[in-house]
Design a protein around this nucleic acid. Structure first.
Length: 270
DNA sequence: CAGATATGACAAC
DNA sequence: TTGTCCTATCTGG
């Protein structure tokens, strides 16, 4: 669920729902009671998304910082909120709409300097116009680490997760294991532009579809297929299945504590 | 019903 | 590199 496109959509949705409104906040689960008390009754002024980090800004320089991690989810609905089901860390209500948050890695109030520090340690976000891809490439081209790990490093590129990285490397024809040092400036330009296009499409559609969302010759005429994550992909989590382009079985291997997937035929050395 | 798994990140070895 | 955390859902028995 949560790569950068999801966070951007949530920021847009929450802005639409709550900006300029006085919200009531609570923590039915009890793990954010003190924080909820501080924002309850305040007016939400704006929302923002930096990489995978979601910010709700309230009057009085109070910023709610949320990071969904691997399991975090929001649910919402119109009208009055139903009795909380499960572990609801945070509930925001206006009377017109309610919003529940479960399972986040982070749900905390930050001071302005803390917000600045948070944003400062994030790399280039393909979904933001203020992103600086040149600095990201400077880090990449200086590293011996595998490109797959570098693109997942949020201090280099922010908002990319395993699906976007895996799929962008497939589309670039590069295996996830080549070193950052071996990535040419041209290859980086192509990957950066592709990440921007793929993630923007993800924001539009609300799911990741790297096969159809951005036009590619091999995707022509292929009907969309629902995956577990709600989209369609070339190689992510398709271990052993035939590559959609050439038919070679998709391979997998550990990568920086995660899993990489690639087609050994389509993704060759630069 | 136990166990495995999940689009993430961090601390501790 | 391994372990830990946060929660829900899907699998197999």
């Amino acid at each position: 669920m949560p790569e950068g496109h999801t966070i951007r959509r949530l920021a847009d949705q929450h802005r639409e729902l709550f900006r300029g409104k006085r919200v009531t906040a609570s923590s039915p689960q009890g793990r954010f009671t003190a924080g909820a008390a501080l924002i309850s009754g305040e007016v939400m002024e704006s929302t923002d998304a930096y990489g995978k980090h979601l910010l709700h800004r309230y009057a009085g320089d109070r910023t709610l910082h949320i990071h969904l991690g691997l399991y975090g989810r929001f649910t919402d609905g119109p009208g009055t909120a139903p009795p909380p089901i499960g572990e609801v860390r945070l509930r925001l209500t206006t009377g017109d709409h309610w919003l529940d948050l479960r399972g986040p890695t982070a749900c905390e109030l930050l001071t302005p300097p803390e917000v600045k520090a948070l944003i400062g340690r994030l790399g280039a976000d393909p979904l933001r116009d203020d992103a600086d891809p040149a600095t990201a490439y400077a880090r990449i081209s200086r590293s011996n680490k595998p490109i797959g790990a570098l693109l997942l490093d949020q201090s280099i590129v922010a908002g990319t997760g395993l699906i976007f990285v895996t799929e962008a490397l497939f589309r670039a024809g590069l295996p996830p294991t080549i070193s950052g040092r071996s990535l040419s400036p041209e290859a980086w330009r192509e990957i950066w532009a592709d990440l921007r296009a793929l993630m923007r499409a993800g924001v539009e559609v609300g799911r990741i579809d790297t096969v159809h969302a951005v036009h590619t010759p091999e995707a022509m005429g292929r009907p969309p297929r629902e995956d577990r994550h709600g989209g369609e992909v070339y190689v992510y989590r398709r271990t052993g299945q035939p590559c959609l382009v050439c038919g070679t079985p998709v391979r997998t291997a550990p990568l920086a504590g995660r899993k990489s997937y690639w087609c050994p035929t389509c993704q060759t050395l630069p």
